[in-house]
């Protein structure tokens, strides 16, 4: 380092140690611990060490539908958010001109309102006496307030999409910024319609950002247990809720750990699928 050469992680690997220690101690360690625990058993509320696949068998046997539901709603929320985020980022990039900085700051401004504040805001909007229902009833469009607006999967989707949108806009805007405008002009010049130019000259170059945005939204959704409880109603149970109850009320940490690992595996599979699908669809012919 004293020779003035730029830092190199290869040569000055010791610089990585603090960060590596934090990651190892607070993330990798606990994760490995729960991986081991997921093969343990519980007997009379006590954890019994051993190697037992019973927890996994139980999750597959009894929790298949909630896992599928969690993956499905996660896929829906992440897809909708990513598509909306791309549209917003693209608009800011192409039409924002000198206001692009302000528009971007405005999207980030929503992050100042915390997660729970947003949930409560949506409850106010969607509730039985909420603004939406009052308006609909007042206008005579429906005779009685629609109960299903709140305490339903629809509410979960609305809340999470609105919450996640800024997180998804950021990586996409960054990716768009690195694209030279003249490559789009070139596509148009060579005969591409405006839509074809986006498909051929813009989207393929956003694949890493699209996957990042999707994964971010998907993982937050797949691990969420607050939103479904607050606005999802009693019938919208996601894996997060089941895992939480195993770690909490039911005191069955091994089963909770097995649920966690199966959810993680399924999540990785969904993200890998989306990544491959995007790469295949957007590959230049």
């Amino acid at each position: 380092m004293s020779d003035g050469a730029p830092l190199s992680l290869k040569r000055d690997g010791a610089l990585l140690l603090p960060a590596a220690a934090v990651l190892a101690g607070l993330f990798i360690g606990p994760m490995l611990y729960f991986l081991v625990v997921s093969f343990f058993k519980v007997s009379l509320f006590k954890i019994v060490p051993g190697f037992d696949l019973g927890n996994y068998a139980k999750v597959v046997g009894s929790y298949g539908p909630p896992i599928l539901f969690t993956m499905g709603i996660g896929f829906l929320i992440a897809s909708v958010t990513t598509v909306l985020a791309f549209i917003v980022a693209h608009l800011i990039w192409t039409r924002g001109r000198r206001f692009s900085g302000i528009l971007l700051a405005a999207t980030l401004l929503t992050l100042f309102g915390g997660y729970l504040v947003k949930i409560y805001a949506w409850r106010t909007l969607l509730g039985r006496d909420g603004i939406v229902n009052n308006t609909l009833v007042g206008l005579g469009i429906v005779r009685e307030p629609i109960e299903a607006l709140l305490y339903s999967p629809v509410a979960v989707v609305l809340v999470l999409v609105s919450y996640l949108l800024p997180f998804a806009i950021l990586p996409l805007y960054g990716a768009l910024r690195s694209i030279e405008e003249k490559t789009i002009e070139a596509a148009r010049d060579l005969g591409a319609s405006p839509w074809a130019a986006v498909r051929d000259a813009v989207l393929p170059r956003c694949v890493p950002a699209l996957v990042t945005a999707f994964a971010l939204c998907f993982l937050v959704t797949a691990g969420d247990y607050v939103t479904p409880r607050m606005v999802g109603g009693t019938r919208t149970m996601m894996m997060g809720n089941f895992i939480e109850s195993q770690f909490g009320l039911r005191m069955n940490v091994p089963l909770g750990a097995a649920m966690t690992y199966l959810t993680i595996t399924a999540s990785i599979a969904v993200i890998a699928f989306v990544w491959l699908a995007l790469k295949t669809v957007l590959r230049p012919k």
Binding site: K182, A186, A187, R188, D189, R205
Partner: peptide
């Protein structure tokens, strides 16, 4: 619009598609 004109442009800085091979660029 550009795509409907019988003109083609060589852009300043070229504007090649960086994610396409040379063959794909020329054939686009």
């Amino acid at each position: 619009p550009p795509e409907k004109r019988p003109t083609n442009m060589v852009f300043q800085g070229y504007g090649l598609f960086p994610h396409m091979t040379i063959r794909q660029n020329v054939g686009y």
